[in-house]
Amino acid sequence: MTDSTDSDPPMLRLQGVGKRYGTRWVLRNLDLELRRGELLVLLGESGAGKSTLLNLIAGLEPADEGRIELDGKAVQARDDDTSAALRRRALGFVFQAFHLIPHMSAARNVAIPLMLNGVAPGQALAAAGKMLAAVGLDDRADSLPAQLSGGEQQRVALARALVHAPALLLADEPTGNLDPASADVALRLLATQVREQGAALLMVTHSEHAAAIADRRLRLGSDGLHAA
């Protein structure tokens, strides 16, 4: 586990960030800081712009105003290749619908971020095996996603998001498709693994239950971010 202090520079910093579609501003004047090892949950109604905010942080969409820094470097104003390289190296994603590749085994799915970073397939698969063991799925490494339960698929997705030791993990409703018992397991693993790796977590959710793992909770409304 990596401890962070207030004197450390923030892992993620948003300053006056805004995004509009056409003439409608979805996000306006957002400020946010997130430090290593911190688990931040973002609550909000549907349509509040939570997923859009994740896309801006990941550089998948450009912000229309403000500045986003990841590990001291601006995410915006980068070309597509630089933005993709940053995501490969520094970010991990967990989605509500898991987004596993259906024709690849659990181990191969987990190995993908490593292979995208140039790790040899043999080494990547070995590391994927260890990561699957960490989420309690070492006996399911050869299973295809369709052969796994929803909870198991989300644990594979979690292993994939963390296998390359990203500095920041972005999770979009990670328990939205899970039953309460599977959701509990996934959340516990998410919190443990993020803390063990010294990463930061920014999780978007509707669920108060999921939000319970957070160190800090914010609510995104039409007038910006507020403590929840």
Binding site: R88, F93, H99
Partner: peptide, 16 residues
């Protein structure tokens, strides 16, 4: 679109 989206979000190039 989900598998392609997952890879793109992970920083994969269009070719990958």
């Amino acid at each position: 679109p989900a598998p392609s989206r997952a890879l793109r979000d992970n920083g994969a190039s269009p070719a990958a």
